[in-house]
């Protein structure tokens, strides 16, 4: 394995209905079409080594998804970008690509925050989080009802041009799902959600997975 190519891509309209498992196949095939020197797993059924940063719920569009691809040879990130852009189906826009050193923490383990934009009929129902001290989420986990205050895991709620931006904790340590957030607010009707980006908190600031150095 020579390098990790970290790829930033999006999911537009129709692509939002492609589940995470299907997304893996879409990228495996696009990477094969792009004729990149993929690094494969060993075993009976070898697969390219792909790690997606953070699974996205069905129906959510995104402009900030990340994928780490292990390559056997060094390839200029610009080259990876152009070859893959050509090969991806149209509802998957490609934004950026960075070459990361081997051994860099996988994005999946590193992600700490996600930024979502909600576009509800009534924005005040989400903006009201700013005036709340607690926000109780109730979930059913293996038959048991679990309640949790998710307010401490919501870092920012603000109005933007297109809706309401909410930055929440995300990743393997602590994760606030957008549907759980809506449910905790008592919003039952479907609300369009868009994921803007994923972040890693390091040294008190948020960086994107493309900027990982270690």
């Amino acid at each position: 394995m020579a390098m990790i190519a970290c790829i930033k891509f999006g999911k537009e309209q129709g692509a939002a209905f492609i589940s995470h498992l299907d997304l893996i196949r879409v990228f495996e095939r696009a990477l094969r079409r792009a004729k990149l020197p993929l690094s494969f797993s060993e075993g009976f059924s070898p697969r390219p080594k792909l790690v997606f940063a953070h699974a996205l719920g069905l129906g959510i569009t995104s402009s900030g998804e990340y994928l780490d691809v292990a390559l056997d040879e060094d390839v200029d990130p610009g080259e990876v970008f152009f070859r893959l852009k050509e090969a991806l189906p149209s509802p998957f826009p490609l934004y950026d690509c960075a070459a990361l050193p081997n051994g860099v923490t996988p994005a999946m383990a590193a992600i700490t925050h996600a930024s979502y934009v909600f576009t509800p009929e009534d924005e005040s129902r989400i903006l009201q989080i700013n005036s709340m001290d607690t926000l109780i989420s109730t979930r059913n986990r293996k038959g048991k009802v679990v309640t949790e205050d998710i307010r401490p895991h919501i870092s920012l709620v603000e109005k933007t041009g297109s809706g309401v931006r909410v930055i929440v904790r995300a990743g393997s340590q602590k994760n606030v799902r957008p549907d759980a957030l809506l449910a905790a607010l008592g919003i039952e009707e479907p609300v369009p959600v868009h994921r803007e980006d994923l972040y890693i908190e390091t040294g008190g600031r948020l960086i994107t997975p493309l900027m990982r150095t270690e």
């Binding site: 309209q13 129709g14 939002a16 209905f17 492609i18 589940s19 299907d22 095939r29 069905l58 129906g59 189906p89 149209s90 509802p91 479907p190 369009p192």
Partner: peptide
Amino acid sequence: YQTLCAKHLDRIEKPGRYLGTELN
């Protein structure tokens, strides 16, 4: 099909069947 999927996402088991935008 896409607007139907968006509107009734919770009821449609595999929206991927109806997208019609597959590669090729």
